[in-house]
Amino acid sequence: MPEDLERFVQQHREEFEVPGPSPHLWDAIEKELGTQQGGAKIIPLVKRNWFRAAVIALLLINAGTMFFFISRNQQRKASLAVLAPDVAEAKTYYSSRINEKLKLINAYPLEELGLDSAARKELELRNETYKTLEKELKNNPGNERIKAALIRYYQLKLDLLDKILEELQEKKVTPEQTKKHYEAEI
């Protein structure tokens, strides 16, 4: 009598495997994530000069947003949680982490921070770029590229704030705990 199918599969498990997917699949994924021009270039730049990197990153984020202005649908009144629950969950997670970082950064004296008011405004969670992306998503709730752009926006911002904090800590600057110039809006 032949052995049981389950036992046979267990004993020859590796032989059932085929080589992985086409090497081009990663390229397609990377393109879909919209990260080819963003993340890969920003990180080494930040290492050299975080302030310039901050400005470049903000420009990249803002430039990316312009793409979504091309088409606009009529305004629909619905919350993000209903229209795009997956993005709403990401928003909760990233907002909390971004706001933690912003509080730490804002505790530093302005002169140590070295950012002008416009740059500080850009670092806030709900800047113009964010509002535009969120509005576009509400107008086009099923648009995967807008969803990806919003997630990417959160990720880049979080990474950028981390780099700024690392830089400040490396300079051994002591934060002035009582000095808070603005509270992050949620």
Binding site: E17, V18, P19, P21, W26, L33, G39, Q155
Partner: peptide, 22 residues
């Protein structure tokens, strides 16, 4: 990966894409 590091995400993809493709 959470901070959008593409190289990190690629490492994750490389580790799992073979088994997941199967």
């Amino acid at each position: 990966c959470r901070k959008g590091d593409v190289r990190a995400f690629r490492e994750l993809y490389n580790a799992y894409s073979g088994a997941m493709y199967n």
